[in-house]
Simulated assay, not measured.
Amino acid sequence: MNVLVVEDDVELTQFIQKGLVSEGIAVSTAFDGIIGRTMVNENRFDVVVLDVNLPGVNGFDLCRFIKQNWPAVPVIMLTALGSLDNKVLGFEAGADDYLAKPFAFKELLFRLKALARRHPSRAPRPKRLELLDLAIETDSHKVWRAGERIELTAREYALLEYLMLNQGRVVNRIDLLENVWDVHFNSNTNVVDVYINYLRRKVDRTEPKLLHTVFGVGYMLGAEP
């Protein structure tokens, strides 16, 4: 699962991030609404967690933006504004769930997982993905690097596409197992590392290297590590 947390309280954000990562969930964070909007534009998330009182763009407006552009992405409002009127505003903005602060982390975790299960569909894949001289056509599963066609197996392609959809973000092994191999448990298998090496041999035969290992965390596809 890939979660975006948009919250201007740094301490609370770190608390949520630490808890979710310990559960094998990939977490991205933004500390204001403008950054959050940019991240939603550039990445795919399974669930978005929004505070309401955010600098730049408030949570209600950001929720409307998400739902107008990616209606399948579930949003949970996480805010100190727990009155009935504020909850109504949240749901009218398109929120799928509303959790008032203070909250128990375990409840947030269960709600996130429930939302992800109820909303398995994601935004449609772009027809073409590009990173420098690496290009993918998602309909035909064709891949090129520096104008040269690269032949990939079905699993290699699925791994590369997922990394391309999350380019610039470190993706951990559990996230890859869940989204590429459909393995929904903390497995000790080294299949991810094996296939990363397969991709390196085919995709990174030319400079610059695009597939990077972030030791102790996971892998990232990008121009720079």
Rank of each mutant, 00 (worst) to 15 (best):
D139R: 11
A80D: 09
R117T: 14
H141Q: 13
W144F: 13
S121G: 05
P124F: 07
K87H: 06
K113I: 09
E151A: 13
Q68P: 00
H119W: 01
L54R: 00
P120K: 07
E148K: 12
G82R: 01
P102Y: 10
I136C: 11
S140M: 13
V52L: 15
E148T: 03
T79F: 05
G147R: 08
A93C: 03
A114I: 07
D85N: 10
G94D: 11
A135H: 12
N58C: 05
L129Q: 09
A104P: 05
L78K: 02
N53G: 08
R117A: 14
L134D: 03
P102T: 07
L62Q: 05
A95C: 08
K106P: 01
R111Q: 12
A72P: 01
M77H: 00
W144A: 09
K101I: 05
C63F: 00
G59E: 00
G56L: 06
A123K: 15
L129Y: 06
V75N: 00
G147D: 12
E137F: 11
L132I: 12
R128H: 12
I150G: 04
F65W: 01
A116Y: 10
V75G: 04
A114F: 07
L109T: 03
F105Y: 14
N53D: 13
F65E: 08
I136D: 01
D97I: 06
D133G: 01
I76Q: 01
R117E: 14
A100F: 03
A114G: 12
K101G: 02
A100N: 09
A104W: 11
I76D: 07
F65A: 06
L134I: 09
L81T: 02
K127P: 04
S121I: 12
K87E: 13
W70H: 14
V57Y: 01
A135R: 15
P124N: 06
R118T: 09
K67S: 07
K127E: 15
R125L: 15
D96C: 11
G90W: 06
R64W: 02
D97F: 12
I66L: 04
F103D: 06
P55D: 04
L134W: 02
E92P: 00
S83T: 15
T79G: 01
L115V: 09
D85C: 01
K101P: 00
L134P: 02
L132K: 10
A100W: 04
E148R: 11
T79E: 10
Q68D: 15
K87Y: 00
D139T: 12
V73Q: 09
A123R: 14
D61E: 15
A100Y: 04
L62T: 03
R149G: 00
V88N: 08
L78M: 05
P74I: 07
F105E: 04
A72N: 07
G56E: 09
W144S: 10
N53W: 02
R145S: 03
L129H: 03
A72Y: 10
Q68K: 13
A100K: 09
V75P: 00
G59L: 04
M77K: 03
L108A: 03
